[in-house]
Design a protein around this nucleic acid. Structure first.
Length: 657
DNA sequence: GATTAGGGTTTG
């Protein structure tokens, strides 16, 4: 064998045992691998990639199993592959984002202006654990495959790249960290299973940690529960009930008790509290909905999977007796009648102590003052209080979010989209000035819309030290853009500044619209306090590329407005009631007011918090106690002086959110 | 031999 010849090791895989002894053949490797940015429509290629997204194999409506896998490599290009096979085994065995795959004989074709990979005759795959430092052992059903030292290097290099460029399974969380409303991936052991009806199956699983809220208990017919009854009973406070629907039912039915599972895109919801139920504690529902969106599905993990090995060690170390005690307290709560409200409160106290989901104060040294005493005293004072939230206003969340100027302290409404669109439409009729395009600060491109009377849009790409960067870190300015266009661009670029041409330079379009759109946050400036400067002033930020809203606002002479929640709480501690104001950016609810209007998830979290603090359909005796820090202050109106109260230094405990 | 799905959450 000449020194330049590579060695191809042909590993012969017999069932699950990989032969330790490579058969050494003196042949030149025949496989070449195409970088993902060089794929040509119509070709059949071999590729390597790190898994960016995947749907675990599921039965398609046709004859085959299907798995959708998106991969990326060092070229930063992404390829989505449609993998089909009659045989489940020949699809890649991917367990999580970041795994490394090698595909042989993948056909590249075009679909909707993008290329995609599809299985073709002779398709085969190897999958490797993506974690740095773990052994490079392929998962595959292929009995014979090549694996050279070059392959080893490719996998290792991709692991390093993926560790920096692909966010690992952040969705993989423990039951103890589960939030009241979220989608996540769960690694767990199956302890019980029951068919509930034709379209759903109940899975009872645990991962050794205690969820922050008790699990809902799904009802099923007597005798339909599979699993060891003693064990199910012993673990009842640590297991959660997952309802699995529709297309996942068949797979769920086939699962063996005691197997280790990864359940992808599991959904938690708070169980509505109904008057029939005696408990005033929120319960969590776990759903694996129908469909395969976001890779929703179930995969059985082998015993030798490193996550399973870790889970097994952890499950063995759990002290079950500790959770048995809590169970007894739970039983007390479930069984007592509503007439024993003081007992219930004491249970509530235990629960709150354990899970601390009620409002906390930073000022633990202060003694609690009854509201009746506060009402008799002059202002200004500070108090620690313990009360229940009898009512709050406004009830509609979007009405509680306002814009506050830290300089002149004015409060204003967040502009409605239709108002923004009017201003943008008006501005779009003005002609961009070509003299202001392509300067040392930015490169400009003029686009002409096709269907709207040839409207001109100019995008100015701000350079970093004279060089254009990738969109993710590039700030752009837009002239003549409408709301939908700005919205689309804000998804691609670091930030978008709506501008217009003036005599000397580009200037901020109008403070009636955001001066900067960054991610989901629309930043506004105060009309009264801002003293606008032109866009060339951004030059001062270019070197450091410090494109924070604060820096940009300062460079442009803008006083940025803060998003705040403004609410009135009516508090009641049995001795009296007090109206208390809350003005909060993000500390109180642990939810940024600046992002909530553009986030369904945050809105749901907020609704859930208010639902917990002020549960509808319940008597006030059953409301949770809140601990707050408030201060009183004098407000003089035209006729008289009034004492007002405001919450501060108070937060909702993290566990609730 | 073609089809399946074509990533971007249910509404139980």
């Amino acid at each position: 064998m000449s020194p330049n010849e590579s060695t191809v090791y042909v590993y012969v895989k017999c069932d699950t045992v990989i032969s330790e002894e490579p058969i050494c053949l003196s042949v030149t490797p025949k496989y070449t691998y195409t970088p993902l940015n060089q794929l040509k429509h119509g070709s059949v290629v071999n590729v390597y990639g790190a898994v960016k997204f995947f749907k675990p194999p599921y039965r398609s409506r046709g004859t085959d199993y299907c798995s959708v896998v998106s991969i990326m490599d060092q070229s930063n290009a992404k390829l989505t592959c449609m993998l089909f096979s009659v045989n489940l085994d020949t699809l890649p065995v991917i367990y999580k984002i970041g795994d490394i795959v090698r595909f042989h004989r993948l056909k590249i074709q075009q679909y909707k202006n993008e290329i995609q990979g599809v299985t073709t005759v002779g398709f085969s795959s190897l999958t490797f654990e993506g974690t740095l430092g773990t052994p490079v052992i392929p998962r595959t059903s292929s009995k014979i495959y090549t694996f050279t030292s070059d392959d080893q290097k490719t996998v290792e290099a991709l692991r390093v790249w993926a560790a920096h460029h692909i966010s690992s399974s952040g969705a993989l969380i423990k039951l103890s960290d589960v939030k009241a409303m979220q989608f996540f991936d769960l690694t767990c052991e199956l302890v019980g299973k029951a068919e509930v009806d034709g379209s759903s199956v109940l899975l009872k699983v645990w991962d050794g940690t205690k969820p922050p809220f008790p699990s809902w208990k799904v009802l099923f017919e007597d005798g339909s529960l599979e699993g060891d009854a003693d064990r199910i009973n012993q673990l009842q406070n640590l297991t959660v009930d997952i309802l699995v629907y529709d297309n996942h039912v068949a797979l769920a039915k086939s699962l063996q008790i005691g197997s280790f599972l990864r359940i992808y895109s599991l959904h938690t919801k708070i169980q509505p509290i109904t008057p029939k139920k005696q408990s005033n504690i929120a319960h969590l529902e776990f759903h694996l909905h129908g469909g395969t969106c976001y890779g929703r599905g179930i995969k059985v993990l082998p015993e030798n999977n490193c996550d399973v090995e870790e889970l097994k060690r952890f499950l063995d170390s759990v002290d079950l007796a500790e959770y048995q005690q809590l169970e007894n307290i739970c039983d007390l709560d479930y069984n007592i009648s509503s007439s024993f409200s003081c007992k219930k409160d004491s249970w509530n106290a235990v629960f709150i102590q354990k899970h601390s989901f009620i409002v906390l104060t930073d000022h633990q040294y202060l003694e609690t003052t009854p509201l009746s005493a506060i009402l008799k005293r002059d202002a200004p004072q500070q108090y620690r209080i313990r009360a229940k939230l009898r009512n709050y206003e406004p009830q509609k969340l979007y009405q509680s979010v306002k814009l506050h100027c830290p300089k002149c302290h004015s409060l204003q409404e967040v502009p409605h989209e239709s108002d923004l669109e009017l201003v943008l439409q008006e501005a779009a009729t003005e002609q961009p000035d070509p003299k202001l395009q392509n300067t040392s600060l930015y490169n400009s491109e003029v686009w002409t819309t096709q269907n709207q009377q040839e409207r001109k849009i100019v995008i100015h790409f701000i350079k970093n030290d004279g060089i254009l960067q990738v969109p993710e870190v590039t700030l752009i300015m837009i002239e003549g853009g409408l709301l939908s266009e700005i919205y689309q661009l804000s998804k691609k670029f670091k930030g978008v500044i709506p501008v217009k041409s003036s005599q000397e330079d580009l200037i901020v379009l109008d403070l009636a619209v955001p001066f900067l759109i960054q991610g989901k946050t629309w930043h506004y400036g105060c009309k009264q306090c801002s003293k606008l400067k032109t866009m060339q002033n951004l030059n001062s930020l270019v070197k450091e590329a410090s494109w924070t809203p604060v820096c940009i606002a300062e460079a442009l002479g803008i006083v940025p407005l803060q998003y705040v929640f403004v609410m009135t709480f009516t508090l009641d501690d049995g001795t009296g009631t007090l109206k208390v104001y809350l003005m909060d950016c993000e500390k109180f609810f642990q939810i940024p007011a600046s992002e909530i209007l553009n986030s369904d998830d945050l809105q749901k979290n907020m609704e859930m918090i208010m639902y917990m603090l002020c549960p509808p359909g319940k008597k006030i005796g059953e409301y949770p106690w809140l601990e707050c820090f408030i201060k009183s202050y004098n407000v003089r109106n035209e006729v008289e002086q009034e004492i007002c109260y405001r919450i501060f230094d108070t937060v909702i405990a993290e566990d609730l959110i």
